[in-house]
């Protein structure tokens, strides 16, 4: 088990490093794409800034607090997107028949799909999210207790893990419906956009759905509430608010099951 994980990690690094080298051989294009992603990703934060020239608070949250939420959500999505963003091309590979080439190599198909055309330009989004996050930390007067400090890596690790699982499930669906990458995007990119704002601006039913159905609130909302010393509008018990690791683990198990079933389906239908 450990041995297999190590082999998978090694294969991932090999493939990713090679794609980085390829993208670096077109340096100008790499720079343009990275800066482009930085700017496009930053545009929605500019919209928030513009909004705040007219208002002082949104859903009871100040600009710097929203910047904290925004930064957390964008960072988690950006990291997940960097790690396996091209997994959504699964459907195209199935249609073109190029998935078969991956299946005859001595490396797990999942690892190959995750690392496929690994795109370092996605650092653009991560940098942008990171800058907003850093600025918000600077602007907010947070009382950095050890527990609050520990919540920052907690947020990034489990938030990213949740998005990784959703990306994987979304891609695995393509084993059955060859072209449904837009459906997955609705949950990943769409979910991240929702999580950039305080949940207090959404109706209670929506927050519940984003907690119990598609658990986006565990990405950054609950950890941020703790760091920012705010109350949960749903008034859920603390055990639920700190359920991020459990939610991430459950989603990971579910995603692995869906993926495996998908591979089995492919291998029994050949289409």
């Amino acid at each position: 088990m450990v041995e297999r994980l190590a082999a998978d990690a090694r294969a991932y690094v090999l493939l990713a490093r090679m794609w980085i080298r390829v993208s670096m051989s077109y340096r100008t294009s790499f720079v343009i794409l990275t800066v482009g992603q930085f700017l496009i990703s930053g545009l929605d934060f500019v919209a928030i800034l513009v909004m705040f020239t007219n208002i002082d608070a949104l859903g009871g949250f100040s600009l710097s607090e929203i910047a904290f939420l925004y930064g957390g959500s964008t960072l988690c999505l950006g990291l997940a997107d960097l790690i396996l963003g091209n997994i959504e091309r699964l459907g195209r590979r199935i249609r073109l028949g190029t998935l078969d080439a991956m299946m005859v190599r001595p490396v797990s198909v999942y690892v190959q799909m995750c690392a496929d055309e690994f795109a370092l330009r996605r650092l653009g989004r991560i940098t942008q999210g990171g800058l907003v996050f850093a600025w918000s930390v600077h602007a907010l007067d947070i009382d950095w207790t050890a527990a609050r400090l520990a919540m920052v890596p907690y947020l990034l690790v489990f938030g990213t893990a949740i998005f990784l699982a959703i990306f994987t499930m979304g891609a695995a669906v393509q084993f059955w419906t060859a072209d449904s990458s837009e459906l997955a995007n609705a949950f990943t990119y769409g979910g991240s956009t929702l999580a950039q704002f305080p949940m207090t601006i959404y109706p209670t039913e929506a927050i519940k759905a984003l907690t119990f159905a598609v658990p986006i609130t565990f990405v950054n909302w609950y950890p941020s509430l703790f760091i920012l010393d705010r109350q949960d509008p749903l008034g859920l018990p603390g055990a639920v608010q700190f359920g991020g690791p459990v939610v991430a683990a459950l989603l990971a198990v579910l995603a692995a099951a869906v993926w495996r079933t998908g591979v089995r389906h492919y291998r029994s239908t050949g289409s």
């Binding site: 080439a101 190599r105 001595p106 490396v107």
Partner: peptide
């Protein structure tokens, strides 16, 4: 044993490159 077997076989897919 697909991945173990992969070390022992080579495949050329004709029209589609690997």
């Amino acid at each position: 044993e697909r991945t173990q077997l992969a070390h022992r076989i080579g495949v050329v897919f004709g029209q589609r490159t690997a």
